[in-house]
Lab assay of single mutants.
Amino acid sequence: MKKYKITVYDEKTGEKHTIEIEMSEEELEELAKKLAEKHNVKVRIEKV
């Protein structure tokens, strides 16, 4: 498992949230996809 920083940005409201999380790359990609689809936000992932 690796550490990642996830930034979620909502273009409508301008809200931006960043968290650090430790998980596998596959789980992370699935999480990012679900966030983007369900909440209509942009998701950026960076390795820490």
Rank of each mutant, 00 (worst) to 15 (best):
M1S: 08
K2M: 15
K3W: 15
K3S: 04
K3G: 03
Y4V: 02
Y4D: 00
K5N: 03
K5W: 05
K5M: 07
I6Y: 01
I6R: 00
V8A: 03
V8G: 00
V8T: 11
Y9Q: 06
Y9I: 11
Y9H: 07
Y9T: 11
Y9M: 11
D10V: 04
D10F: 12
E11V: 13
K12H: 10
K12Q: 10
T13I: 02
T13P: 01
G14M: 05
G14D: 05
G14C: 07
E15C: 08
E15S: 08
E15Q: 10
K16I: 15
K16V: 15
K16S: 14
T18M: 10
T18S: 06
I19V: 07
E20G: 02
E20F: 14
E20T: 13
E20H: 12
I21Q: 05
I21N: 02
I21R: 06
E22C: 13
E22Q: 07
M23I: 12
M23G: 07
M23N: 02
M23D: 02
M23A: 12
S24K: 10
S24A: 08
S24F: 13
S24D: 09
E25G: 04
E26P: 11
E27I: 04
E27Q: 10
E27T: 06
E27V: 05
L28Y: 03
L28I: 10
E29M: 11
E29W: 13
E29S: 08
E29P: 05
E29Q: 12
E30D: 11
E30H: 09
E30N: 10
E30T: 10
E30F: 08
L31R: 01
L31Q: 01
L31C: 09
A32N: 03
A32H: 06
A32D: 02
A32W: 09
K33I: 08
K33N: 08
K33W: 04
K33H: 08
K34F: 09
K34I: 08
K34P: 00
K34N: 07
L35D: 00
L35S: 01
L35R: 00
L35E: 01
A36T: 12
A36N: 08
E37A: 06
E37W: 03
E37P: 02
E37N: 07
E37F: 04
K38E: 07
K38V: 08
K38M: 13
H39Y: 07
N40K: 05
N40S: 09
V41N: 12
V41W: 09
V41M: 05
V41G: 14
V41C: 12
K42R: 12
K42N: 08
V43E: 01
V43D: 01
V43T: 01
R44W: 15
R44D: 14
R44Q: 14
I45N: 00
E46A: 02
E46H: 04
E46S: 02
K47T: 15
K47P: 14
K47H: 14
V48H: 03
V48F: 04
V48M: 07
